[in-house]
């Protein structure tokens, strides 16, 4: 069954139509990648799903409930959250405090401590740095903290916006390993990523956006072999549909 079903989603900023009626569905426990050149509308899509974008239209069903137009905190409390682009950890707060913030919306206080231990097991570097200001962490550590934060908010579905942005290749390896761990633990993931190969390595299914519309979609393995992808990215003249 689908955890997330997006139908005819449009996003407009004033007179700019950033997303023009797209359909996406994410199976429960699946990892779906949303690819496309910069400016294609990937981030706008995630923002709209999360209640961050004003001019969104269409239908977004999360576990069967239409959540479009809900304030973000309500969506989060229902079990879906986003790791925003650029990580956006609370720089003046310590690692520990960042993690505490993530649990504010939770009702099941009793299980928080256990969850926190699990998160530290998954991200040992955060345990080492738990008393440090988040702003003093390296980019990779901040990204791990952002993932850990989302995890601790007890989300079942995570939207990841460009988790590899600005990170060294080695660090990206670590982050992607963690993302695979999350999937293994049963989380459903929708990943926006500019690093196409890496994304396709771990995704089950992918959509390619260009100019606010979906130009390609299919199982990740198939897209990996497609030449059309390079065209969508590198601005080569488009062939008659791939």
């Amino acid at each position: 069954m689908s955890a997330l079903v997006v139908q005819d989603l449009g996003v407009a900023y004033g007179s700019v139509q950033a997303v023009r009626g797209i359909d996406i569905s994410v199976e429960r426990g699946g990892l779906v990648a949303l690819l496309g050149p910069n400016g294609a509308g990937k981030s706008s899509t995630l923002r709209a799903l999360m209640g961050w974008a004003r001019g969104a239209s269409g239908r977004v069903a999360f576990d069967g409930e239409d959540i479009l137009g809900w304030p973000p905190e309500r969506i989060v409390r229902r079990g879906m959250t986003m790791v925003p682009e650029g990580r956006r950890v609370f720089a003046d707060l310590t690692v520990d405090e960042n993690l505490v913030v993530a649990t504010v919306g939770r009702r099941d206080r009793a299980t928080i401590a256990a969850d926190r231990d699990q998160v530290f097991a998954l991200f040992p570097v955060l345990y080492e740095r738990r008393g440090q200001k988040a702003g003093s962490l390296s980019g990779g550590e901040q990204q791990q903290l952002a993932l850990a934060r989302a995890l601790l908010s007890a989300a079942r579905l995570l939207l990841l916006d460009e988790p590899s942005l600005g990170l060294a290749p080695k660090v990206v390896d670590t982050i992607f390993e963690r993302i695979v761990d999350l999937k293994r633990r049963g989380l459903t993931l929708l990943l926006v990523e500019q690093n196409v190969d890496r994304a396709l390595d771990i995704a089950d299914h992918a959509y390619v956006l260009a100019n606010g519309a979906i130009v390609m979609s299919g199982p990740a393995a198939e897209l990996r072999r497609s030449a059309g992808l390079a065209q969508a990215y590198l601005g080569l003249e488009r062939e008659s549909a791939a």
């Binding site: 999360m50 989060v76 959250t81 986003m82 956006r88 919306g105 908010s153």
Partner: peptide, 10 residues
């Protein structure tokens, strides 16, 4: 904005 992503009610 990000605080709201953590479930904090505005």
């Amino acid at each position: 904005d990000v605080a709201r992503l953590m479930g904090i009610r505005a």
